[in-house]
C-alpha cells in the first residue's frame, strides 16, 4: 500500500475555514489526508501545538490564515508568520522544516484551498513518513525534537517572537528603528543557544555530567558548553553536584 500521510491543519475561522467550506460547496476534490482544527485566528497557533503534533508522529502540519492585510483581527496573521518562522528555523536543525507550511487562503478561494492542500499532501508524500511515526522510535531524534520544543517554549524566544514586529517595524522613543538584519542575527543566535541549552538540560536530566562529557556527547566545543552551563546556572536550572578528578559535575535542578 502506498504511503498515506497524516496531516493536521489549523484553519482560521474567518478566511481559510470559510475557503475550505467553499471548496466543499463547489465540490472541488482534494486528498483526504488532512484533519482540521478550527481556530479563530492563525495567530492563535502556538508553536507548542506544532511540536506536539510532530512528536506524535503526525507527518505534516499546515496553518492557513487570511491574506496579509485581510486579517479579521487586523494583524493576527502577521503574528502567525513570526511564530511560524521560529518553528521553521528550529525544525531546520533536524531537516524537518518541510513538514510544516503556512499559507494564505481567503474566504473566496475554495479553489486555492484545494490546490494548497493537494500540493502540501504531495510534498509530504515525497518526504515520506515522519521519522517519528513508526513503531521503532528514534529516541535520539525524539530528544532533539524535545529540546527544540523546550527552546520554543523558553521565555527568551517567546519574548523575542512577541516583540519582533515592535522592535523591527516601529521606532523607539528616540525615533530609531532596529535593523531587521541585526535582529535576525540576534534571533538566530538565540535560537541556537536555547536549543543547545535545552539539549544540555535534557542530557543532565538523565544523569549528572561534566562539561567534557557533555562536549563529547553533544559533539560541541567544551568552551561553548561551559558558557551555556554558566548561563543555565544563572537561571537556576543546573547546579554543581560534585567535583570528581578536578572536574565539576553538573545536574539538572529544574522542576518538571
Amino acid at each position: 500500500m502506498s504511503f498515506e500521510p497524516r496531516i493536521l491543519g489549523f484553519l482560521c475561522n474567518w478566511c481559510s475555514y470559510a475557503g475550505a467550506d467553499l471548496a466543499g460547496v463547489s465540490r472541488i476534490q482534494y486528498p483526504p489526508n488532512i484533519r482540521v482544527i478550527r481556530v479563530m485566528c492563525s495567530g492563535r497557533v502556538d508553536p507548542e501545538f506544532i511540536f506536539k503534533a510532530l512528536k506524535l508522529g503526525i507527518d505534516g502540519v499546515i496553518i492557513t490564515g487570511c491574506h496579509p492585510g485581510d486579517c479579521h483581527y487586523i494583524e493576527g496573521n502577521y503574528e502567525a508568520v513570526k511564530k511560524f518562522e521560529l518553528v521553521q528555523k528550529l525544525l531546520s536543525k533536524l531537516n524537518m522544516e518541510k513538514r510544516i507550511r503556512l499559507e494564505w487562503v481567503s474566504a473566496s478561494e475554495g479553489n486555492r484551498f484545494a490546490e494548497v492542500i493537494t500540493d502540501f499532501t504531495n510534498q509530504i508524500k515525497e518526504l515520506g513518513p515522519s521519522p517519528l511515526s513508526g513503531k521503532d522510535l528514534d529516541m535520539e531524534l525524539m530528544e532533539k525534537l524535545e529540546a527544540l520544543e523546550m527552546a520554543a517554549e523558553s521565555y527568551r524566544l517567546r519574548a523575542l517572537v512577541g516583540r519582533e514586529r515592535k522592535i523591527t517595524e516601529q521606532e523607539n522613543v528616540y525615533g530609531e528603528k532596529y535593523p531587521k538584519e541585526k535582529f535576525d542575527n540576534l534571533f538566530d543566535a538565540a535560537i541556537n543557544n536555547e536549543y543547545i541549552r535545552n539539549r544540555i538540560l535534557l542530557s543532565l536530566e538523565k544523569n549528572p555530567k561534566s562539561v567534557k562529557d557533555l562536549a563529547t556527547q553533544l559533539n560541541i566545543d567544551s568552551k561553548e558548553i561551559l558558557n551555556h552551563i554558566l548561563v543555565l546556572k544563572g537561571r537556576n536550572q543546573v547546579a554543581m553536584e560534585d567535583i570528581i578528578e578536578n572536574q565539576p559535575i553538573y545536574l539538572n535542578v529544574m522542576e518538571r
Partner: peptide, 30 residues
C-alpha cells in the same frame, strides 16, 4: 483572536473556548 495566548511568554493567558487543553485534546485525539 487568541494571539495573546500563543504569544504569552509564560503561558499565563488562556483563551476561552479555544484553550490549550482543548486544542491539545484535538491534536492528541488525532
Amino acid at each position: 483572536c487568541g494571539t495573546c495566548g500563543s504569544t504569552c511568554t509564560k503561558h499565563a493567558i488562556e483563551i476561552k473556548h479555544f484553550n490549550n487543553e482543548q486544542i491539545m485534546a484535538e491534536i492528541i485525539a488525532f
